[in-house]
Design a protein around this nucleic acid. Structure first.
Length: 304
DNA sequence: GGAATAACCTGGATGC
DNA sequence: TGCATCCAGGTTATTC
């Protein structure tokens, strides 16, 4: 399931291949991959074809490729190709003549002056992911929009997404203030991308386990020390997962070269139902929470 | 306005 | 073997 580390691995893989490249053709095989682009496939193909890609940026789980203004001078500009991988989306680099990937939804052909011609394939089994062309908006704090860009701008569809905890402009104090006002369970808050971004079900369970916090603890009841510990553990688990190439289950997540990450072997709580807690040896339990599984150690993570 | 919930979607696993 | 059901979960619209 692509969360921050997986999306960052994809971004870093795309960056050298696409920066400076020109989109020479676009083929949309499945309109469902454009749910974030209401103008439809014909418009998507028309707007994107001929544009030069300026880089690869990311905030939380959102990825975008800023586009240079079109040379035709039609007035458009300050746009980006945005991508959200959903649960099973993949962005893959392929040879131009490569056969279509399984669940391939969109294929861009790009021409790079050093790398030559390449295909960028968007494949997605569960079709929760989506691509779109969107305009860039200035960031309210004037800082760079996210990892991989110096521009103080983000796509409009990403503007409501909070910065992620690995972003140098992330405001720890602001997070503490928001948590202090939240009546919801801390896990629900961690999954709210408008509070902090990039954390999904896997890393929420892992960070809460590491910080010894029960997932249903009310956010406002956490002490400053507990919030600081949780934030440190969130950063640690994201950093470690990033270093190990992300978490892959059933090939739902692969990097741009189609390779799996290794962090699934380092999980302490997520997906370890009934197996011993690595800290105390008692069994990890799984409960249904927010229509998804929540894994924790009832001994180490006691509800207060 | 904040919080909670349902719906979207596909394919693998499981049970019968 | 074949069919039905369950499960996985990020985002967003809807409801309370």
């Amino acid at each position: 399931m692509p969360e921050l580390p997986e999306v960052e691995v994809v971004r870093a893989g795309l960056e050298p291949a696409v920066t400076g490249a020109v989109v020479t053709s676009v083929h949309v095989a499945d309109d469902r991959a454009l749910t974030r682009h209401p103008a439809g496939a014909v418009d998507f193909e028309r707007v994107l074809t001929g544009r030069r890609i300026a880089g690869a940026a990311r905030r939380g789980k959102f990825l975008w490729l800023p586009l240079d203004a079109p040379s035709a001078g039609d007035g458009a500009g300050g746009e980006a190709l945005i991508a959200h991988l959903g649960m099973s989306g993949q962005l893959l680099l392929r040879e131009p003549a490569a056969a279509p990937d399984r669940h391939e939804r969109v294929r861009l052909t790009i021409e790079h002056e050093r790398h030559g011609e390449l295909a960028v394939v968007f494949a997605d089994q569960r079709t929760f992911g989506s691509l779109a062309i969107d305009r860039l908006e200035a960031t309210p704090d004037g800082a760079a929009g996210g990892r991989g860009t110096r521009l103080a701008a983000v796509p409009a569809q990403v503007s409501h997404i909070a910065r992620d905890p690995l972003d140098p402009a992330f405001d720890d104090r602001r997070l503490r203030l928001r948590l202090a006002r939240k009546e919801s369970a801390i896990k629900r808050v961690l999954l709210d991308q408008t509070v902090l971004s990039g954390v999904g079900n896997i890393y929420a369970d892992e960070a809460l386990w590491a910080a010894r916090i029960h997932p249903e603890t009310l956010a406002r009841t956490l002490s400053t020390r507990a919030v600081n510990r949780l934030l440190a553990e969130i950063r640690a688990v994201l950093d470690k997962a990033l270093a190990e190439g992300g978490t892959s289950f059933d090939e739902q997540y692969l990097n741009v070269n189609g390779e799996a990450g290794y962090f699934a072997h380092s999980l302490n709580a997520y997906g370890r139902t009934s197996r011993p807690c690595p800290r105390c040896g008692r069994p990890i339990v799984r409960v249904s929470f927010m229509n998804r599984g929540s894994h924790f150690c009832p001994h180490c993570q006691r509800q207060r």
